[in-house]
Design a protein around this nucleic acid. Structure first.
Lengths: 159, 159
DNA sequence: CAGATCGTTCAGTATTGACTTAACAAACTG
DNA sequence: CAGTTTGTTAAGTCAATACTGAACGATCTG
């Protein structure tokens, strides 16, 4: 396999791991990102030099997250994987969901905190405000991405 | 210790772990978030029921990330920890840095990809566009957070 | 200076988590 | 139906990770 692609895959593994994903999942995603066509389970296992079982598990995890999808080819019983048409919006939505969780956790804690702990309450409210902002801003960001996605070079003003 | 606070700390540990941090670090951050005053190393170790060594390591990691800070009290040789005045902007900046890394990795891979792999190149360019958008939007987001941070209830139009 | 306190580091250990092999279930082929 | 092929699941193994206890250096106190 291409040396440069191999390096890229490894870097993707590291970066994805830093974001809380499994390293192997990051590698699979990287491989499919830089690929020219969908790959079968065995192909992925072969290219990444891991067992088929490992690929099966991690690929299904990525599928669950909406980052890759399974496609089938006529007259072929195998599953093929490729990255979703736009995995990035999905990533934003997943993050948005986590921020919502965080917001709830923060709010619950603040309400349960004894009244005299004003500093803690203040700090938690601060954190809530921040996460609420993130949640709100995500919608606009997704919208801007949708318009940018289609034609990045065109400077149309249509809202 | 308060039952509700303990639950909060545990949830923060889980959520932080999902974001790629160490679970213990998340717990420390949660404890300090909901606290009324800075805590010493021993206090943290006691409240979280872990060794002082563990707290020392994780607290220094959080300090390195700019999420908590070390403060000293006159006539006291101990270090005290508390969350930074605004850890959230810092978190945004760290994320922005990771997106920059990702952008570079993607660009390198695209350039190194053989010319005939048009689908892969296209997909990588797509990914680059997305991350460039994230990087750009972060600045505006930080700015909006700064204004919101001070007075959340006031509806001033000043740009 | 002797003793005490505090934070960090290091070696050892335990626990978690991931990968592999192998068995299994389902869908196809002759 | 016997035999393949393909994907998933489970048990066992191994490596990575995080925690602990102890030792150390530094700083303060009598």
């Amino acid at each position: 396999m291409e040396e440069s692609v191999q390096q890229f895959i490894e870097k993707m593994g590291i970066l994805c791991e830093k974001d809380g994903m499994a390293r192997s999942a990051g590698r699979i995603f990287g491989l499919l990102l830089a690929s020219d066509r969908p790959y079968s389970l065995d192909e992925i296992a072969d290219k990444l030099q891991v067992s088929k079982a490992s690929v099966s598990t991690n690929a299904r995890m990525l599928e669950q997250l909406g980052m890759i999808e399974r496609v089938s080819s006529l007259g072929d019983r195998r599953d093929f994987y490729r990255v979703e048409a736009d995995p990035w919006e999905r990533i934003l939505r997943v993050a948005q969901g986590r921020w919502r969780q965080m917001l709830h956790v923060l709010a619950d804690a603040r309400e349960a905190l004894p009244p005299h702990m004003t500093a803690g309450k203040e700090r938690l409210m601060h954190a809530e405000r921040f996460h609420q902002l993130l949640i709100d801003e995500t919608d606009g960001l997704v919208a801007r991405w949708q318009t940018l996605r289609a034609g990045p070079g065109r400077a149309e003003d249509a809202a």
